[in-house]
Amino acid sequence: MIHAVTSSPPLAALVCAAALMAVGLMLPDWVLFTASLALAKGLVVLGLVLLLRMGAVSFGQGMYYCLGAYICGLVGNATGVQDALFLVILSGLGCCALGAVLGVFLSAYRGVFFAMFNLALSMILYGALLKATSVGGSDGIGIAPPSYFGLSPSDEYRSILFYAFVVVIAAGVGLATRIYMRSELGLAALAVRDNEIRLEYLGLSVRRVIVFNYAIAAGLAGLGGGLVALVSGHIIPEFAYWTTSGEFVFMTVLSGPSSIVAAFGATALFETVRLVAGQYLPNAWQLMLGAFLLLSILFLPNGIGALAAGRRRTRAPDAKEDAR
């Protein structure tokens, strides 16, 4: 039976979702919030993992995350439509479309310049939102709790129902991403990192591969942003601030490029460490977070994805490492 689960991704996704649901039913309410948050942000990290597979890192993913949250919140507030699925799909599609357009320009950039160009764009969005007093400016704006296919849960069931919703979305998206990663186009991303010229010789357009992955990553960030907006009920421009993007990059490096589940695991781990450090050391939680960052990079060079595999699945990202 286990073999059947492990060799079939859809079944694995189903089992994961069922396990998470079962765990969720046992968790107290305040852990459910963090768990929902972790799964939602895990989608953003999943998008960054797609970029990392191409050897690209964005310090501006907060832009799509923020935009997704605002699409979800503003459309919901303006139209009165509170259906969670409709809103988050809208967020994802909107960001994916913007990502496809910007990706055409950004695909010419590599390394730090790619990362920083993204940062510049997200800071421009941040600056614009600070000025947008009609949507709350820097204080942000509240959004109504979501409904699910016409069903509006009462306060007691809101957390668990939202958690279930995020679990289903995360499992579905995780599964789709896994299938994509193993597809021809998905594997081409790895080739972009290894050798762009060889990829061109094979008749594939490097640029197209980058744009495609970038757009998907943007869509995932938008989806995650929309979900976070719904779970926290309040959206603020800070979502686009560079430190938010920095946190996502941290979670991505913590996850490593090799696994879907690791993306969610890394996010959960990060959120938990931050919460627990804040609980026990209100005066030194940043120090704990910094130390956690250093130690995890030191002992998990390829992320927690590689840890569970029990061996180094990917080679060191930088082939020139001996030069140092």
Partner: peptide, 9 residues
């Protein structure tokens, strides 16, 4: 990221 961790500390 390592230097980011250092700066937090």
């Amino acid at each position: 990221l390592v230097t980011f961790g250092v700066s937090l500390i």
